[in-house]
Write a protein that binds this DNA or RNA. Sequence first.
DNA 1: CTGAAAGCGCTTACAG
DNA 2: CTGAAAGCGCTTACAG
Lengths: 352, 352
Amino acid sequence: MEKENALFGVKEIARRAKVSTATVDRVLHNRTGVSEKTKQRINEIIKEMDYQPNILASRLASRKVINLAALIPDVSEETDFWLAPLSGIRRAESEMKQYGVQVQVFFFDLNDKDSFAEKAREMIDAGVHGILVSPSFIEETKKLAAECSRRKIPFVFIDSNIPDLQSLSYIGPHLRKSGYVGAKLLTYRLESDKKVLIINISKEVDNFNYHEIEEGFRSYFNDHNQPNEIVRIDIRETDYQSVARHLTYVFHLNKDIGAAFVTNSRVHTVASFLKNSHRTHVSLIGYDFVKENVGYLENNVIDFLICHRPDDQGYRGMMALYQTLVINAPVTKQNFMPIDIVTKENYEFYQN
Amino acid sequence: MEKENALFGVKEIARRAKVSTATVDRVLHNRTGVSEKTKQRINEIIKEMDYQPNILASRLASRKVINLAALIPDVSEETDFWLAPLSGIRRAESEMKQYGVQVQVFFFDLNDKDSFAEKAREMIDAGVHGILVSPSFIEETKKLAAECSRRKIPFVFIDSNIPDLQSLSYIGPHLRKSGYVGAKLLTYRLESDKKVLIINISKEVDNFNYHEIEEGFRSYFNDHNQPNEIVRIDIRETDYQSVARHLTYVFHLNKDIGAAFVTNSRVHTVASFLKNSHRTHVSLIGYDFVKENVGYLENNVIDFLICHRPDDQGYRGMMALYQTLVINAPVTKQNFMPIDIVTKENYEFYQN
DNA sequence: CTGAAAGCGCTTACAG
DNA sequence: CTGAAAGCGCTTACAG
């Protein structure tokens, strides 16, 4: 009168291998304490049956909570950019929590390397199983990556990448191509006798990301034999007064600037300057769909914003961790986001 | 010696209400056969505890399979547009199937209303619990919607909408705004003495979608007092010869057409004509990131393609059904997709 | 209208 | 190295 209706699942494997389900479970999860012989026999049957575990049952039985963490910049007065990735992370969280996954978010200060290191420490100490991180500081990120490797904690990068660090996945823009797109838009209606101004506003002296964007931007000019002269300026102070001072000088020296390209989300500062100095005829392109920029899109001072779906980056980053840790499914190593073009006319539907 | 360690879940509710978990379950799912009094008592406790059901356990115990279906156009020789929504549907499927959800896709012929009705019939007869549909034919869709309402089967529309049909959700473009964006791009570098040509290539005489797009397009010209004259042409045959014949005539009549806007994905036919007749100086904008169009983006005949994340539409549509039927969570009634701008420079990263 | 018991497909101590 | 048994938090017949 035994019920042998289980034609699949661990029970069936156990029946065929003439072992208990406990042993099957051990093999399934590469746990120790199974003779090599039994192990092989079971593995063959698993293959034969093309066994697919029931994640539902698995998660329910093992009441292990999986702890995922994210280490991202805090939203600051300067920019609310990180609101978007955060919202993607939260969205992932709300989908995963029913399956026993918890998410903790750690925020660091973009102007303070030490806060990154400190929060990374906290995060590791919290005993997390997987990490999403915005690798804003190279050295500190390397240390974190090393620690993760040591503890076998998978980690993904979003927004920018540091190659060769064994990250599970990179989810973010292809910066070179992004700069290239910027150049296309900038030159689309640019007269050939006008100069082009590249503006890099950043406290960090050597941000590799901006270099890549600029390289991409310049390579478009090369590829298309654009005759326009390119002027560039680095501004190390991010406040309006400093930016205005530098720009006044550049515009004074170069009377015929027809378009400006800002390599990051600080384009609103430039927009403000152009507006105040009655230079709104200059085409302006920059990065990121943040609050500060939208107003200038609205009143036509900024022509285009380039964006890389920051919301999606957060979402997909968390999902990549989930895939690895819960579903045990493979994850794409490089996941380049679309290079989105946002204008006054389409921004209201740009959710990411 | 009883274990009373369950401080949550149906057991705890049952304990507090002094009933069995079976009765709690009945109340939880609005099943009949519970006295009004007991029901009230249990509902109070549920509220008090802010009880969240464990979907894992629920899905595992009730081995009911949920059948979702999609009714979309088949990929035809004419266009592979529907490959994208299909891939989104498949992506959703692979995420949901571990949770006991099955997905069936039914394909109809875009040139044959009857095939829509027929497949709709088949789908309903298959006993599905939720439906995603591309409402390509109004009357047939209305019939399907009525049948769904009768059977209390939730349905979502993607790609285009038919309002007032009690759909669970619409996921797709805001067509008016999309046409508006098209006009912005078209005029961005257009000289004011040039004419603009609107081209509508479609066998259907009265496609409401194209009307909306065109209206949006025209309203941009109004809003901005664009001086350009607008010429429009309707082409009822979709083959290249017919299109070429009509266009030859229009271009003959109007010597100074500077830009053309095609209201759908058939922009590649126009591109082909422009190329063959050495008119590639005409700016060309149209719809959809389909194989046929990409080549012309590549060789600069098409300037911009406008897209509405068809992949995402399929994915989100299925997810909306999942949310309703499995999670019992609310769903947004209108979900307008971003209006994406695809160019030669950024298309390689446009996955949707 | 209500409850006791079995069961979903796994995992986990525990005992040997 | 292996297995019997209990249990995860629900749902489902079945019996009353």
